[in-house]
């Protein structure tokens, strides 16, 4: 079966997941993002690539950072952006997802940016729509958050230049994290061989080793000589049942403190997809410290989303 994100020529027409995308496409996105970075420094922070196109931001799940950066990215490409907060609209009146989509398509949308709590929602929408529409997955359930994975990869490449030979540790709630899943797929494809997942057994998905990642339950082992540390948020809203004793207990064992950070390489970078829970997964002095690149991730995220939107729209 053909990858549903690619057209008959193998070109990216939707971005639903990083899994299964060839390295050339990932590299093309990262390279294109590089050329969008400088646009933010100009008088007019816009290029006319998507002039006259309508981008619909469909967020069935709340988000500030992702929705805002997608909106800014679309506007810097000169697209018209419509933001829909579906929690408060038709779905709450009982309309089905695909009926909502059909109505928006009838309003001549060109691109949908979709976040949904159900894994696979963006795939379903992409399959349902005619081929001239484009769908970008902005996070579906526990499954994927491909633009976050790409902006994480962009950040790593920016600071570390190459993916090969790096040691990357992803720490915390791997089980519920679509961010972790997307980043693992991206780094596997881009050639990072030393990938580590650190967290309690209860927050580790079963079979995670099959993704080419080594599992650690001890920070002092897992962080040793790392180049990149990716802290994940403890997702309280996704937690069902007693997976954890308490937030304080978690911080003691898996929170990133200056002492634990010292186990990594001296030039290691600290990343976090946000929103951060200070004092739960990360200590304030680390989050605000010289090794944190958390705010750069946000800035890079705009350029990466511009790259993804302009590439899918051109196919």
């Amino acid at each position: 079966m053909r990858n549903p994100q690619l057209n008959a020529n193998g070109e990216l027409t939707h971005l639903l997941t990083i899994e299964g995308l060839p390295r050339e496409i990932l590299t093309h996105i990262l390279d294109t993002a590089t050329s969008f970075i400088s646009i933010a420094e100009r008088d007019v922070k816009k290029v006319p690539l998507l002039r006259g196109k309508s981008v619909f931001n469909l967020f069935f799940e709340s988000s500030t950072r992702t929705r805002t950066t997608f909106e800014i990215a679309a506007k810097r490409l000169s697209a018209d952006v419509v933001n829909l907060n579906i929690n408060t609209s038709s779905q709450s009146k009982g309309e089905s997802l695909l009926d909502t989509i059909d109505n928006l398509a009838a309003m001549n949308a060109d691109m949908f940016v979709v976040r949904h709590s159900q894994s696979g929602a963006a795939h379903m929408i992409a399959r349902h729509l005619a081929p001239h529409f484009h769908v970008i997955n902005a996070g579906d359930g526990r499954h994927a958050h491909p633009t976050q994975g790409l902006l994480d990869a962009y950040t790593i490449r920016h600071f570390k230049k190459d993916f090969r030979g790096l040691s990357v540790a992803i720490v915390g709630d791997i089980l519920h994290s679509r961010v972790a899943r997307s980043l693992i797929h991206a780094l596997n494809t881009l050639g990072t061989t030393d990938l580590r997942a650190i967290g309690p057994q209860t927050l580790m998905p079963s079979g995670v080793e099959q993704l080419g990642i080594r599992v650690y339950h001890d920070m002092s082992e897992g962080l040793r000589n790392c180049d990149v540390i990716v802290m994940l948020r403890l997702q309280n809203e996704r937690m069902r049942g007693p997976l954890l004793p308490s937030a304080q207990e978690f911080f003691k064992t898996f929170g990133l403190t200056p002492e634990k950070l010292a186990l990594a390489k001296p030039d290691a970078i600290v990343m976090h997809p946000g929103p951060m829970n200070r004092g739960v997964e990360i200590d304030s002095s680390v989050a605000d410290g010289p090794q944190a690149v958390i705010l750069q991730q946000v800035t890079f995220g705009i350029a990466v989303r511009m790259a993804v939107m302009s590439i899918v729209a051109s196919h």
């Binding site: 070109e11 050329s35 006319p48 302009s310 729209a313 051109s314």
Partner: peptide, 23 residues
């Protein structure tokens, strides 16, 4: 200047793989 982002044939010819940033 790399004018790739300003071309009037973007929708038919797409983005080239090697866009260099304008400076």
């Amino acid at each position: 200047l790399d004018i790739s982002f300003y071309r009037d044939d973007f929708s038919s010819s797409g983005l080239h793989a090697s866009v260099k940033p304008s400076q």
